[in-house]
Nucleic acid binder design. Structure first.
Lengths: 142, 142
DNA sequence: CAGGTGAGTTGGATTTTCCGACTGACAAGG
DNA sequence: CCTTGTCAGTCGGAAAATCCAACTCACCTG
């Protein structure tokens, strides 16, 4: 018999996607990176359905990506801020943004999301953690 | 009146997510990066439902991320290969993987996905496109 | 008091997902 | 020839998620 077994590969990518792997999660995160920390602002700037956004923000908080920070007692209101883990999503997020600019026809260029102190645009790249050299994206060579 | 208007921010991230923004798309892409180019292989290694995977592969092909390459006439069978655009997703993909390793408790370390010629592990980072300097992830400073 | 803001929640219709089974074309073994 | 197996999907139906407008609650402001 031995029916075609399905053994999903153990991979941290899958784990990452459980936390930040859905459209509205990433767009919400983008807003927080841009400095929009409140629910209604995120709704307005992303267009996400309010209920779905509420759910996503919960999983982002539970996943340690965002932190709720109270900015008003009475009525109790919190805003969402990046944690250390959240801030570390910057390379992935920026990588997707820049990829969209380059490869999706009709994608709005938008204001260059982040700029370096020297004035140049920032981009995501692959670097070697030990020698620091920038490596080209070169998978299994066709 | 002026009902709370929702004007989604124009952003290349949203465009990117239209193409690669779903769980099974990214996992399928991971497999192709790993050298698994055939439908059944991708099903086995990701655990994606076959019909959903078929749909995702179609949008990846339509989005210019993958290319179908025929490897057998009779029966006609194609495998999926990365295009230039697909290869350029490496920084984003690697960024998510490495993030998962670092920040999701219980995420399998797995074999270090890519290694540099010098033997060190590769990671995604933010670099300045003009001066080449590596920048820290530092959004709106809290 | 009327109106507005902020952060959600609720109900219900619509879409997707998931799952197992099925198809069609072929190859290999007995 | 007949059975078994592989590959790349497709199909049908149940289960889950999404979308949307409307609603709530708790305030604040004029």
């Amino acid at each position: 018999m031995a029916k075609r077994e399905v053994n999903p590969r153990e991979c941290s990518l899958a784990s990452a996607l459980n936390v930040v792997g859905e459209r509205w999660s990433l767009l919400a995160l983008r807003e927080v990176f841009y400095g929009v920390h409140r629910f209604d602002g995120i709704v307005r700037n992303t267009g996400a359905p309010r209920d779905v956004l509420a759910a996503r923000l919960r999983t982002l908080v539970d996943g340690g990506v965002l932190r709720r920070v109270r900015y008003s007692e009475r009525p109790p209101r919190d805003e969402y801020h990046l944690t250390e883990a959240g801030r570390e999503l910057a390379p992935a997020l920026l990588g997707l943004m820049r990829w969209g600019m380059r490869w999706v026809p009709g994608a709005p260029a938008g204001p260059t999301p982040f700029t370096h102190d020297c004035g140049g645009a920032l981009d995501a790249a692959i670097v070697c953690t030990s020698c620091g050299e920038t490596a080209p994206p070169e998978p299994d060579a066709e």
